[in-house]
Nucleic acid binder design. Structure first.
Length: 507
RNA sequence: CGGGGUGUAGCGCAGUCCGGUUAGCGCGUUACGUUCGGGACGUAAAAGUCGGAAGUUCGAAUCUUCUCACCCCGACCA
């Protein structure tokens, strides 16, 4: 039996990481570019991953007392105007609707017609439009808190786009809450950051670092921004979720006021928090290998793919009957409250091709079922996260008995592997020369995979951060909440510092 | 918005510098046959306004001018 020499993905991570990322998405049929600049088509396999994320997160939101609602796609220009920093942060990258009709000109071409009195902005985020509603809904302290989430699409007219990581239109959820006190809003901000951490680590098998963003990376208009940061296999950081404490900034802008118990009129305290389809990009870059996607069982569109093998009608009948039995037995099983999803690939294409198709799609368990298996009451099982992709012949009953355990173990293995990678590439650095060295590729022309998460001291001065960014394209990813205070000197200027932060290159 | 590049079949490309029969190649697609427990092979077939417009010419994918779109590198970013 010939060993496979080449990888399923035409480019390896070592050779060209960005290209590898695109090829994995293509091979896994997650998404593709559309004819609309910067906008992607999310294909069924990718969208099912998103649906699975939605289902898990939605439950977590509801378990923490939130409800869903929906607000308009269009925002009146004046709303966006209300918060100065917010304007500054978003004004440059918005799609604007200026007309409300199309007419046919003398050359037979469609042209915009019917100019709007006031242009409408396609939401880049919904603080302002939701704030307008909240202002009406909140009158008394008895109306608080408001804990609402919306699942929506937003548009940010980005200059450079990449599938899932940065697209002009993307899908996300945005939570917007209103509270009577600073403390309560702060608590909400941390609570949701934690929800994201738990979701990322338990469901996506993606280890993340919770922390506060530096001033320069803060959400426009927020008092403080917190993020979860994950390490990709090129050792770059990907901001995977954010939770913002907005103080009273947006409440003042939108006039969200209430009468307190004491009868005083006060501005409310608000938060917002979101994760997007970017998480799919995180999933791809954190776990996949040179043979394509590797999906953690809890998020995979299917847990198992069954490949029937037969040569003639007799064998087909026997194999089909055997498979139907397996499906029936497994239909009772649940992995974290989710039914086990089995896909039977009965397409009339070559076996080898079919094998690789599902490897590239990242299905956790691939099972070949042929006449020999029917005879022996066995199965040929391949675990996707096994680097060797070794075929194991297992008794059918034993397989089914252990199935939930097997999938849970795979989920843990995928997390542990990512965690190990991150730990190995997280380095305490106290010397700027070392810092510079690790973030500088040996080959400038075609940079090899380099860098790390550098745990270094930072004085908190924006100027040091900017200088480092300028020189090395490295930024403060966040200031970890778990990081204990320690005496040290700023990696750049040498001023006293009380805390280590995470420096890294990022997406 | 500054610098560079590319538009030829569904996808990836050759041909363009130096104009010349019916515009090719690989992959994919379709049909048939042989194969089939690790990415098969053979035969045949379908598929192209050469990004668009104007011009030069007996003749333009090829030369000229204009134009559109996209990609890469910067600045900006979930």
């Amino acid at each position: 039996m010939a060993e496979f020499k080449k990888t399923a993905i035409p480019v390896t991570r070592e050779e060209d990481y960005p290209q590898w990322y695109l090829e994995v998405i293509k091979a896994g049929e997650l998404a593709e570019n559309s004819d609309v600049r910067g906008c992607m088509v999310i294909k069924p396999w990718g969208y099912t991953i998103w649906e699975n994320m939605q289902r898990e997160l939605d439950q977590m939101f509801k378990d923490t007392g939130h409800v869903n609602a929906y607000f308009p796609l269009f925002i009146p220009l004046e709303y966006l105007q209300q918060e100065a920093d917010h304007v500054e942060g978003f004004a440059k990258e918005c799609a604007v609707v200026t007309h409300h009709r199309l007419s046919v000109n003398s050359e037979g071409k469609l042209v915009p017609d019917g100019k709007l009195e006031e242009p409408l902005v396609v939401r880049p985020t919904s603080e302002t439009i939701i704030g307008a509603s909240y202002a009406k809904w909140v009158n008394s302290y008895r109306d608080l808190p408001i804990l609402i989430n919306q699942w929506a699409n937003v548009v940010r007219w980005e200059m450079r786009t990449r599938l899932f990581l940065r697209t002009a239109e993307f899908l996300w959820q945005e939570g917007h809450t209103v509270h009577a006190t600073r403390e309560e809003a702060m608590e909400e901000t941390y609570k949701m950051l934690n929800v994201y951490k738990e979701f990322a680590e338990k469901v996506l098998a993606l280890p993340v670092i919770e922390g506060e963003k530096s001033e320069s990376e803060r959400f426009p208009g927020a008092v403080s921004t917190y993020s979860i940061e994950a390490m990709m296999q090129d050792k770059k950081a990907l901001q995977s979720g954010t939770s913002h404490f907005l103080g009273q900034n947006f409440a003042k802008a939108s006039k969200i006021k209430f009468q307190s118990k004491e009868g005083k009129e006060e501005f409310a305290w608000t938060t917002s928090w979101g994760v997007s389809t970017r998480l799919i990009g995180a999933l791809v870059m954190a776990h996949s290998d040179d043979n394509g996607l590797i999906l953690p069982p809890r998020i995979a569109p299917a847990h198992i793919v069954l490949l029937p093998i037969y040569k003639d009608e007799n064998e087909k009948q026997a194999v089909t009957k055997y498979i139907d039995g397996i499906k029936k037995e497994i239909s009772e099983l649940r992995l974290f409250d989710r039914k086990i999803v089995i896909h039977v690939d009965d397409r009339d294409i070559r076996g080898g091709e079919k094998n690789w198709y599902w490897i590239k799609k990242g299905v956790p368990l691939k099972i070949e079922v042929g006449p020999k298996d029917v005879e022996k009451n066995s199965l040929a099982v391949v675990k996707r996260n096994d680097p060797e992709l070794k075929k194991n012949f297992i008794g059918k009953d034993e397989f089914i008995k252990n199935l939930i355990g097997t999938l849970s173990t795979m989920q843990d293995e995928i997390f542990e592997k990512a965690l190990k990678f991150r730990n190995e590439n997280t380095i305490e650095i106290d010397n700027y020369d070392d810092f510079k060295k690790i973030f500088t590729p040996k080959n400038e022309e075609k940079p090899e995979l380099h860098g790390c998460f550098a745990r270094s001291h930072w004085c908190g001065n924006r100027k040091c951060e900017e200088a480092i960014k300028e020189e090395l394209k490295v930024t403060v990813r966040n200031i970890p909440l778990a990081e204990k205070e320690s005496e040290g000197k700023c990696i750049y200027c040498g001023s006293p510092s009380r805390k280590r932060v995470i420096f890294a290159k990022s997406y």
